[in-house]
Every structure is written in structure tokens, then in C-alpha cells.
């Protein structure tokens, strides 16, 4: 049953450009990008128990780095992407050194502060980032000679990256290392007593999450062909976090569902409801009240309760 469902989803996802209109294909690309972003944040929030409010740093930095390298250094897309991902991962390594001095609220505040620093730089260091005017990317890359300019082509590209990201993150959390990570989330002191280096486990996860955040940033800037300081703002971080929490942190499907819900509410529902912010609020209120653990675990709970026939 589960395999059938997964296969069906895969087929629908892969064949989407064949039957959907351009607008919906683009919307799907955006959902996939947001999903990679939320999945990477989920490594921290769900599996390491570290709530970050600065994850947009990685998305924004990677996007800026690649746009800047393409326009100012004249690099091709591949070297620019490589440079951008490398620097983003290095930055994550440094940010991890600073942020992981604390956990809980302290961690949240430090990640927030670091991302605000980047946001401020993007706004004010106009000679580098073009300030409020943002950076424009000349076009989309053409890996192996396949142009990604069309909505369908770009969607398939995003889908491929998404599949890779999902698999690699799934492997990461279900490996022995992933189990140790969950251990540090639930019982950090016991894990330390057992001889695990809790700090190192968290740091590696932080860097890994930063790496995937950077990948999401690359896809983001290729999609929009434009990057503006708002992409580094607290709103972007908070939206990612909302997606993770709404979908269900600590699950693999949750962040994907949550990010999808958020993109749909923001970009689709807003065309029909003027006060879509209010709708967003109500949806989250509903989630918190009825399924506080998030959509995916919550629905699973409701279904199993129904299935077992117990009230």
C-alpha cells in the first residue's frame, strides 16, 4: 500500500509538466525549492532539537554568492555554483562554531543575530550586493547542454535535485550517525556520558543543514534570476521554520508538506483572499490546536486511531 502510494506520487510529480499549465509548474518548482529548504532546516529543528531562526542565511548567501560570481567574476554557472556552495558550507561551519556555544533559546538568538548581520550587509554593502536594487542573474544554467529556461525543464531539474536532497537527508537521519543525533536531541547528557561527542555531532549536522540550505538557495536564485535582501530576512527564516513545524518536525515528509502548504497559501490562496495573512494565521492556529505535532504525524495519529476503532 505504502509503496503503491509512493510510486503514484513519484509518477504524478515526474509527469506534472505534461498536463499542468505553466503557472502550476512554476508553483510546483517553488514548492520543491521551499521543501529542500525546510528539509535542511528540519535536520536542526527536528533531529538535533536545535531551533534555528537564521536558516535564511544559507539560502540567501548561496544565492548572492552565485549571482555575484556570475556577474562580477564572469564565472560560468558550474564554477559559480561550486564556489557558492563551498563558501556557504564554510560559512555554515563558522556559524556553527559560534551558534553551538548554546542550545535552546540561546541558539535561536545567535542564529537570528547572525542572519540579521548578513541581511544588514546585503542591504548596506551596496557596492557588493547592489543594496536594495538586488542582483540580477543573466539567465539560467544549461547543464549538459539542456536549457532550463522553460518552466517544465526547470521543474524537472528541481525535481531531480529534490529527489537527491531528500534521499541524502533521509540516509543521513536513518544512519547510525542519525540515531546518535536523535540521542543528542533527547538525552544529551546521557549521550555525553556514553562517550559521544555531542558538540561534534551537532556541528556536523549544522554544516550539513547549511550545505542543503545553500543548495536550496542556488535553486532559488536560478528560479527567480534575481536576489534581494528580503531573501535573507527573518521572514524567510521564519517561513521555513513555520513550514517545518506545521508539517511535522522530525519527520521526512512533514517539512515537504508544510513548505508546500506555505507556498500555496502565500502564492495561490492570496489571489482569492485579500487577507491571506489572516488565513495563514487561522491555518496555523488549527494545526496547533488539532494536530500540534504537525500535519504528517498528526494525520497519521488520527488515521491510526480511526483504523483501530478506538475513540
Amino acid at each position: 500500500m505504502r509503496t503503491v502510494l509512493l510510486l503514484l506520487t513519484a509518477v504524478v510529480l515526474a509527469s506534472l509538466p505534461l498536463f499542468a499549465g505553466t503557472f502550476y509548474i512554476n508553483l510546483a518548482s517553488q514548492i520543491l525549492i521551499a521543501a529542500i529548504f525546510a528539509l535542511s532546516l528540519n535536520l536542526l529543528v527536528g533531529y538535533a532539537g536545535l531551533t534555528s531562526l537564521g536558516h535564511a542565511s544559507f539560502l540567501g548567501f548561496a544565492a548572492y554568492a552565485s549571482a555575484w560570481a556570475s556577474t562580477n567574476l564572469g564565472l560560468g554557472f558550474a564554477p559559480a555554483a561550486l564556489l557558492s556552495i563551498t563558501t556557504t558550507t564554510l560559512m555554515a561551519a563558522c556559524f556553527g562554531l559560534i551558534a553551538l556555544r548554546a542550545t535552546g533559546l540561546g541558539f535561536l538568538m545567535i542564529t537570528l543575530a547572525l542572519s540579521q548581520v548578513l541581511w544588514g550587509l546585503a542591504y548596506r554593502w551596496a557596492s557588493l550586493t547592489n543594496g536594495d536594487n538586488g542582483l540580477t542573474l543573466a539567465g539560467r544554467p544549461a547543464p549538459f547542454g539542456i536549457a532550463l529556461d522553460g518552466a517544465g525543464a526547470y521543474y524537472w531539474f528541481t525535481l531531480a535535485v529534490f529527489a537527491a536532497a531528500f534521499t541524502l537527508m533521509a540516509v543521513f537521519v536513518s544512519s547510525a550517525f542519525g540515531s546518535a543525533l536523535k540521542g543528542t536531541r533527547d538525552q544529551p547528557r546521557r549521550m555525553a556520558a556514553l562517550g559521544y561527542n555531542v558538540w561534534l555531532i551537532r556541528w556536523i549536522t549544522f554544516v550539513y543543514a547549511g550545505f542543503w540550505g545553500g543548495v536550496a538557495g542556488l535553486l532559488y536564485v536560478y528560479y527567480h534570476r534575481y536576489i534581494h535582501p528580503t531573501s535573507l530576512s527573518i521572514t524567510t527564516s521564519a517561513e521555513g521554520l513555520l513550514g517545518v513545524i506545521a508539517g511535522g518536525s522530525g519527520t521526512l515528509g512533514g517539512p515537504v508538506i508544510g513548505a508546500g502548504l506555505l507556498v500555496l497559501l502565500k502564492n495561490y490562496a492570496s489571489a482569492y483572499i485579500e487577507r491571506w495573512n489572516m488565513l495563514l494565521g487561522f491555518v496555523f492556529l488549527f494545526i496547533v490546536l488539532v494536530i500540534p505535532e504537525g500535519i504528517v504525524p498528526g494525520v497519521r495519529r488520527l488515521l491510526s486511531r480511526k483504523g483501530s476503532g478506538k475513540p
Binding site: G21, F23, N133, H224, H228, T230, N267, A271
Partner: peptide, 30 residues
């Protein structure tokens, strides 16, 4: 800006508009 772009795509690709009026801010136009 990112929303401005999505909304423009929506107007063009979903609503098939013939022309646009706006946007308001310079960075949206860019």
C-alpha cells in the same frame, strides 16, 4: 520581490493578462 515575481507569473500564465499596471516599488520592477 520574490512574491512580485510569482504574482506576475500568475497574472500572465494563469490569468492570461494582456498588460500589467504596476508594480509599486523599484525593487519589484527590477
Amino acid at each position: 520581490p520574490a512574491t512580485a515575481r510569482t504574482k506576475t507569473q500568475e497574472l500572465v500564465e494563469k490569468n492570461n493578462v494582456h498588460c500589467l499596471i504596476g508594480p509599486l516599488a523599484a525593487f519589484e520592477a527590477l
